[in-house]
Design a binder for these strands. Sequence first.
DNA 1: TTGTAAGCGTTATCAC
DNA 2: GTGATAACGCTTACAA
Lengths: 336, 336
Amino acid sequence: MADLKQAEIAKLAGVSQATVSRVLKGDPQVNAEMRERVLAVVQQLGYVPDARAQSLRSQRTRLLGLVIHRDPDALAGDPFFSALIAMIVAQAGRYDYHLCVDTARTARSQRAIYEELLRTRRVDGLILVESETQDRRIERLSNEGFPFVLIGRYEPEDAVCTVDNDNIGAAYMATDYLLRTGRRRVAYLGGPAGLTVTRDRLQGYKAALEAHGVGYDPHRVVFADFNARSAASATTELLSQSPPPDAIVALDDMLAIAAMRTAKQQGCRVPDDIAVVGFNDSPLCEYVEPRLTSIAVEIPTLARKATEMLVGLIEGREPSPKRQIAPARLVKRESA
Amino acid sequence: MADLKQAEIAKLAGVSQATVSRVLKGDPQVNAEMRERVLAVVQQLGYVPDARAQSLRSQRTRLLGLVIHRDPDALAGDPFFSALIAMIVAQAGRYDYHLCVDTARTARSQRAIYEELLRTRRVDGLILVESETQDRRIERLSNEGFPFVLIGRYEPEDAVCTVDNDNIGAAYMATDYLLRTGRRRVAYLGGPAGLTVTRDRLQGYKAALEAHGVGYDPHRVVFADFNARSAASATTELLSQSPPPDAIVALDDMLAIAAMRTAKQQGCRVPDDIAVVGFNDSPLCEYVEPRLTSIAVEIPTLARKATEMLVGLIEGREPSPKRQIAPARLVKRESA
DNA sequence: TTGTAAGCGTTATCAC
DNA sequence: GTGATAACGCTTACAA
C-alpha cells in the first residue's frame, strides 16, 4: 500500500506517466493494447487518482458548498434541513460532485465562510439557504462572478439565481381548500413577521380570500416565533376573538401542531370546530392526533433544481430563468 | 480581481514568494518590517491562499468526511441527522476543518464512497454513522490505517474508534424512572429487532427490571419499524394483553408518540393509565399532548467527541479509550 | 533572516 | 499514438 501515483503505474505497465493519465481520462487516441496494460495494473493495484492534485491542476475541486444561515442549535432539530442536505448530496452525486456543508452562526462568521469556501477555492460553487432578502455578501459574490444559487427569495428577482418553494401558491392552496370545504373564518398563523416566507405565504392567503370574495380581516392574522409557547399564545389570541376562526393556516407543521393542541385544550374539536393545515408535510404529521393535513413542499425538487443550476453555472451555462419554483401540493389527512 | 497568488503579493511587497508564505504561516523568523509590508499588501488586495494548492503540497485537505449509512429518503425527515450534522460542522470548525457529507444508499455505493473520499485523499478522515455491527469495509479501513471514527457500536469494542450514545444507560434510566414512580408493568417498544440500538436499549431495560426485582416478561417486549402504522400495531399488541402494561419505554420519540396516540384512541389516559417515555428529546416532544417525557441523548457531546477523536487520529494521536460514550439524561414532561 | 529551488500528483501542450 | 515537459500555487529544505 505504498503511495500509488500514476508514475508507479506507468513504470509497471512500461509506459509513460502521461499515457496513464490519458488512459484514465478515456482518451480515445491511445492504442488498445496499451490501454489494456495500463488498466490491468490500475485494477490490480487499486489505483485511484489523487483528488487534491486533480483539483489543483484542473482548478476544480468538484465540491459544492452548502451554507445554511442559521444557528446550529436552531438547525439542530429541524427535519427540513436533514431532508435538504440528504437530497442535495444525492443530486450532487449525479454530477460527480461532493457536498461541503457549513453553518453560519453569526453574520460575521457567515462572511468568513463565504471567504473561506469560495475565495480559497475550496469549493466550486455555493448553495445558500435562508439568507435575508437583501444581503451585502450576496451582492459581492454576484459582482465577483462566483457561481452560487440561493434557496429562498431575493430582490430584484432576476439579479441572482434562486430556487424557491412556491410559497404564495402553497398558502393559496391551503386557504382555498379550507374555503372550498365550507370554512369561512380562516385565520393565518405566521412565523416571525420579518421572514420572507411568512410574508409570501400571507400574500397567498390573502389572494385566496379575495378569489373567494371573503374579506381580509387583519385580526385573523397573527405571528409567532418558532417555539411551542409562542405558538400557543398566538393561537389563544386567535381563539379569543368572537366569532373565533373556524380554520387556521399555519406556517409550518410545528406551529400547526401547537395550534391544534391549544385549540383542543380550550375545548375546540379539530377538525369539527376548527380545521388546521400545516406546511412541510413532515413525518410527524402522521403521528399527531388528528393526523395533520399539510402542504408538502417538494424538497427533492428544490434540491434537484438548485444543484442542477449550480452545476450549470460552474460549467459556464447561464440558466434561464434565473428563478425557479418547486411546486407544492396538499396532503389531506384528518385535521382539515 | 485577477487571480491572486503569493507570487503577486511577493512582487508588490518586494520580497520573495517564500517569504510571503512564511509570513502567512506566522513563521517567527521573519523580520517584523517585512512582515508588515507583506501583510499590508495581503490586506489590501484581499489575498487568500488557495486551499487546493495547500492540500496538494501539505497532503492535507482539512476536510472531514461524514458518511451516513442510510437511504436519503429515510434520512430526509429525521431531525437527529440535522442535529448531528450541524454539531459536527460546528465542532470541525473549531479545528479549522470543513465537513463533507455523503450518504450511502446501497452497500455498493457505500464502498464507492469510502473509496471516493478516502483513497482519493479528498478528505483527511471519516466519521461513519449507523454502520452494521460487523462491516467488511470497516475492517479494510482499519487495516489500511485510514483515520476514521464510528458513531455507534462495533465489535470487538477496542478494534476501532467509536463514539456512542449510552444506550444501555439511557434505557435503564427510563425504565428505572418508571419503576420508581410506581409503575409495575413496564413494556418495551423497540425499533427493528436487528438494530444494535434496539438490542442495547433492551439490555438496559432488562437490567433496570432486574435491579427492581421485577420479573422480565418477554410478552412485554415488541418491535416496530420506523413508521406510524407499524408502531400503532405493536402498541395495540401490548395493550391487548391482560393486564395491559402501565408504562411504555419506546425506542424513539416518533414511536413513543405513535404509542401515545394509539393508547388514547383505545381509551387509555396518558399518563394516568399508561406512562410513555421516548428517546431523543426531539423538538416535537414539546408539541404533542401530553408533552412527551424523553431521554435526551447529547448530540453535541457525540459530535464533539467524534470530531475531537478524528482530528486527533489525523494528527497522529492514538486516542484512549477507543470507545467513548455520550451520557443521556431524562427530560421530564407530562407523559410520564 | 531571506531567497532559490525542488517537489506535491495531476493535466495538457508540445515535439517526436 | 506516445513521451518528455511545463504548469497549477503552495510549503519547506537548503543555500546564501
